Computed example of a mutant assay.
Amino acid sequence: MKIKDWMKLGAGVYVANCTYVVVAATVTMLLEPVNNKLQKIKKELEDSKPENEEES
């Protein structure tokens, strides 16, 4: 392969990596409120679990 081909390949890999990072960050930001809500529900369930066992 010629040097220009290696440069194009490197540029392609760089662009793909940047795209992956941007997409991953965007998905993380979009799913963060959902994750927070699920963590809150999980904590509420864990907190109420001993009370339910005592009633049984």
Results as ranks from 00 to 15, higher is better:
K2W: 04
K2E: 14
I3L: 14
I3D: 14
K4I: 07
K4F: 06
K4V: 07
W6I: 09
W6S: 07
M7T: 08
A11L: 14
A11T: 03
G12N: 10
G12E: 07
G12K: 03
V13C: 09
V13P: 05
V13K: 08
Y14N: 02
V15F: 12
V15M: 09
V15G: 02
A16I: 04
A16C: 14
A16V: 10
N17L: 12
N17H: 02
N17Y: 10
V21S: 08
V21Y: 09
V21N: 11
A24E: 15
A24F: 11
A24V: 11
A25D: 13
T26R: 03
T26Y: 14
T26N: 03
T26F: 14
V27E: 10
V27M: 15
V27G: 06
T28F: 06
M29K: 11
L30P: 01
L31A: 13
L31N: 13
E32L: 15
E32F: 10
E32C: 03
P33C: 07
P33L: 03
P33H: 08
V34F: 15
V34R: 10
V34P: 04
V34T: 13
K37E: 15
Q39C: 04
Q39Y: 06
Q39A: 11
I41D: 13
I41T: 14
I41A: 12
K42P: 01
K43L: 15
K43M: 04
L45T: 02
E46F: 01
E46N: 01
E46V: 00
D47M: 01
S48N: 02
K49G: 00
P50V: 00
E51V: 00
E51W: 00
E51I: 00
N52G: 02
N52W: 02
E53S: 04
